[in-house]
Each structure stands twice: as structure tokens, then as C-alpha cells.
Write a protein that binds this DNA or RNA. Structure first.
Lengths: 93, 93
DNA sequence: AGTCATTTGTGCGTATGTATC
DNA sequence: TGATACATACGCACAAATGAC
């Protein structure tokens, strides 16, 4: 990988912070830090963990949600989507 | 089943605990654990059985009452409604 | 009548997460 | 950045009604 940051945000990097965070989260999910249907850290948590503004973190989340990597449950949290589940919903169950 | 919990509460599950309990109770009723016009365990019982706060248990009960699955008799208990009886009364006795 | 145990009803406070402005 | 709103969950404590003794 030439540009994808690893686990820290680099403001001088050509890739925007929110995309860097996207790469980081994607990598952490792939690495197994968080499993499908399991919550990732809260927005506030990610903010302090990576020293980013909440706006930025939310932008990243939206990015991954659009990619089908994450899904958000209002008033609950953000979860890891199941692999190959582009437009899945938690469904009721 | 993709999301519906079975018989234990999972706090990291995308579905809120009170809804999970709703799924559980609905299943137990359908399974025949408790019959129509028979009381389900008291709120206190459910609290210790599932490790939830009473607030949460009550939220679940309200959910099922609204669905017509259960009906509450103040100071007496919570009962299983008869199938297809949306607004029935126990008819005292 | 009085007491006790059980069960639902209610209110207050605290914490966490996302949603919105 | 900050404030506020909403949904959810926990804990505690007390009130009120019921039923058994």
C-alpha cells in the first residue's frame, strides 16, 4: 500500500483524514478487531482515539456504511456488517 | 435466524435488550411455556432471570401488551393473552 | 384488625449513544 | 465546538393493591 495509513492519522498525507480513518477501520475489521454484528467503538471513542473531530469521524462512518462495511443502529451504535451484505438491515428478529 | 436472540441477552447485539427480551418471551409463549390466561413470571423474576433492570423488563412488557400478546392486571401479575384477542380482559374471577 | 409477602405503578437520578442544530 | 434532544439502560426507593395468615 502506498498511501493507506496504518493506524495513525497523518495530516500531511495526501489522503484526507476521514479516508485515512476509513482505511484504518477497514483494516481493523479485516484484522478481526471487531466481528460482524458487533459494535465498533462509539463516535466519541474514535474521536479521542484518533484525535479527530466528530464531524470527521461521522464522515468516515458514512463512507463505510455506504460501502456496506458498517451499519448504524440509531440510538444504539455502529456495527460491523456481515461480509458480502451490501444492503442488509438488522431486520427485526 | 439472523438476528433474533435465543434465550440470553446480548448487550452488544444491534437489537436493544428490551426487544431481545420481547423476542424471547414471544418465543416461550409460542413454545407453550406459558398458556393463555396464565401468568408469566413476575417482573422481579424476569429481572433476575435475564439480568436486566426492571425498567427494561417493564419496557418489554409494555411492548408485548401493545402487541396484544400479554395483558397486565395491576397488583396481580402479567398474563398471556388469548391468541387473536387484541383487547381482552381476564374477566376477573 | 393487623401484618407480611408479593406484584405492579411511579418517580428520580445517572450514564451512554446517536441525531440534530 | 458546543448544546440540546431522544432512545435506551441501570439503580433505588416508595406507593398501592392483593392475598394469605
Amino acid at each position: 500500500m502506498e498511501f493507506g495509513p496504518d493506524d495513525q492519522i497523518d495530516y500531511e498525507h495526501p489522503v484526507t483524514p476521514y479516508r485515512q480513518l476509513g482505511d484504518i477501520l477497514r483494516a481493523r475489521i479485516e484484522r478481526g478487531d471487531w466481528s460482524p454484528n458487533r459494535p465498533i467503538p462509539s463516535e466519541a471513542r474514535l474521536v479521542q482515539e484518533y484525535g479527530l473531530a466528530r464531524t470527521t469521524v461521522r464522515r468516515t462512518i458514512k463512507l463505510l456504511v455506504d460501502e456496506g462495511v458498517l451499519f448504524v443502529v440509531p440510538q444504539r451504535g455502529t456495527y460491523v456488517a456481515e461480509p458480502g451484505a451490501e444492503g442488509e438491515s438488522p431486520g427485526k428478529a
